[in-house]
């Protein structure tokens, strides 16, 4: 399985590794979403903007996540994420995810190791590639 992303130009003129996917809203529609591939993040976290569009009710509130800015308040929601594999078919990830309630705390949703840890994550800026590889897909390191 190969899930592809790209290096996307962000608002601060920095390119970051992003995988596009979609998240199920409370009305049954799928909401397109961009996820920063953050190999250091323990959890997948939705941005405030994404949370607002989903309309899902939190299954827990008052949760906390820590980072460089200290400890921030989040809610937990339970709704599936879908990413697109190389065949064009979606792969669904059902679970509970944190969701940020402050816009400035997290401007882009984050794909954490609860999902990326299921794959070999390749985040290669010089090579301009972002991949999650699993199942029958592998990578090889070569000296050239």
């Amino acid at each position: 399985m190969q899930i592809s992303g790209e290096w996307l130009l962000c608002d601060d003129d920095v390119r970051r590794p992003v995988i596009r996917g979609e998240v199920l809203a409370s009305d049954g529609t799928w909401v397109p979403a961009e996820f920063l591939v953050d190999t250091g993040a323990d959890r997948t976290v939705f941005s405030k903007a994404l949370l607002a569009l989903l309309g899902v009710s939190p299954v827990a509130t008052g949760e906390r996540l820590s980072g460089l800015g200290g400890v921030a308040e989040f809610v937990t929601v339970e709704t599936p994420i879908r990413l697109i594999r190389e065949s064009g078919a979606p792969v669904m990830f059902q679970g509970r995810y944190a969701a940020c309630t402050e816009a400035e705390a997290l401007d882009m949703s984050v794909l954490g190791r609860d999902i990326t840890g299921l794959f070999a994550a390749i985040v290669d800026q010089p090579g301009d590639v972002v991949f999650l590889l699993g199942q029958r897909h592998r990578y090889r390191i070569e000296q050239v």
Partner: peptide, 12 residues
């Protein structure tokens, strides 16, 4: 939220 990430179920 506990330190262990919640289980994720992957399905095609």
């Amino acid at each position: 939220m506990a330190n262990q990430p919640p289980a994720i179920v992957m399905q095609e």
